[in-house]
Computed example of a mutant assay.
Amino acid sequence: MNATSIIQSVQTLQSNILQHVHHRALLQNVGQPTLQEEQLFFIQLPFLNGAQMNDDRKISAITVGIVHASLLEHEKVMEVEATSKEQQLIVLSGDYYSGRYYQLLAQTGNILLIQKLSRGIVNRCEHQIRLYEPEQRSLEQWVQSLMIIESELISQYYDVYGFTAYTDLMQNTLTYIRLKKELQLIQKGQNGFLYRVLALADNPAAIPSAAESIDEQLTVYKKRLREIVKHMNLHNDLKQSIEQYITV
């Protein structure tokens, strides 16, 4: 296992996902689906670290990637001008990707995976819906919601195939990466999940304090991740890849 092999494995999964959701009209109008490289890495991680790959697991990995793509498309829909042609096509693209992963799941006949991914989708969406609820929550609670949003589908996938030894590492890394993105948006005064739930648009004076609190959370997660990596049975190149995620 080396850095080149890791990159090629992630790129292969990406290509397989794009092949399964290819649609010329959608590609021309809304572009390729969003596939987050770090999530693809963690879908592949057990196999990169020595787990056996077979046809069932290959299709399951592709399916998890398509589910992520479908949900991310729906997140792109704006709250205003949601009836524009582009916005309607984004909704349709999300629905189309949903149909493709339903097809793949039906072909596998893997009832447990279907059950687990369905549960993961529900849980993930429930935490996204909290964005629109009036209940006040702490930053720590919102960060937990971000962890569910970023990692729940892969957690369920790991559970199906007995890859739960990687769950803690995956959850904390993906949360750390998402927190870094959220912090950058807040520092730029741009709309993001935490920017919205912390109502920073209505209270710009609170931005420095919020940014400082998120930075403190990042420090905690970085320390935790390095302890997890230190004690995990991972190839050195995989440890280096994860280290890059928490230092870049």
Rank of each mutant, 00 (worst) to 15 (best):
K85H: 11
L92P: 01
N203M: 13
P204L: 02
T175A: 08
I207S: 05
N203F: 13
Q88V: 11
G192R: 01
M78A: 13
G31E: 12
G99M: 12
L146P: 01
S118L: 10
L153E: 04
E75K: 03
G189Q: 08
L146H: 09
L113N: 02
Q156M: 12
R226C: 08
L71G: 05
Q107N: 15
A25F: 13
I129W: 05
L218E: 00
A69T: 04
P33Q: 13
S241D: 11
N172T: 12
V143F: 03
Q52M: 08
S9Y: 02
L40F: 09
L18G: 09
L27F: 08
N236F: 11
K222D: 06
Q19A: 10
L27K: 05
A165S: 14
R130M: 13
T12K: 15
L40N: 01
Q144I: 09
E227Q: 14
M170D: 01
L104H: 09
I7P: 02
P134D: 14
I154M: 03
S151L: 04
N110R: 06
S60K: 10
L27G: 07
L179E: 01
M232R: 02
I149H: 00
D159F: 13
K85T: 14
L153T: 04
Q87H: 06
P46H: 10
R224I: 03
R124L: 12
L238H: 05
T247N: 00
Q115K: 15
V122G: 08
K230E: 15
E152W: 04
Q14Y: 00
K181S: 01
Q103L: 13
L238F: 06
P46M: 09
D55M: 11
T175H: 03
V248F: 10
N29H: 09
E126Y: 13
L234F: 02
Q107L: 14
L117D: 02
D95W: 08
Y101A: 02
E73I: 06
Q11V: 00
I62S: 00
K239F: 10
Q171P: 00
L179K: 04
S9E: 08
Y96A: 00
Q144N: 15
T164D: 15
Q8I: 04
I62F: 05
E150Y: 00
S151V: 04
Q187W: 03
Q240R: 00
H22D: 06
L153R: 07
N172C: 11
M170Y: 04
N236L: 08
M170N: 02
N236G: 08
Q240K: 00
D202Q: 14
L174R: 02
K181N: 07
V143N: 06
L153N: 05
E133F: 15
E81T: 11
E212V: 12
Q39S: 14
L48H: 07
T164P: 13
Q32Y: 04
T34F: 10
A201M: 11
R196I: 05
I148T: 13
Q217G: 04
A51R: 01
R137P: 07
H231Q: 15
K116D: 07
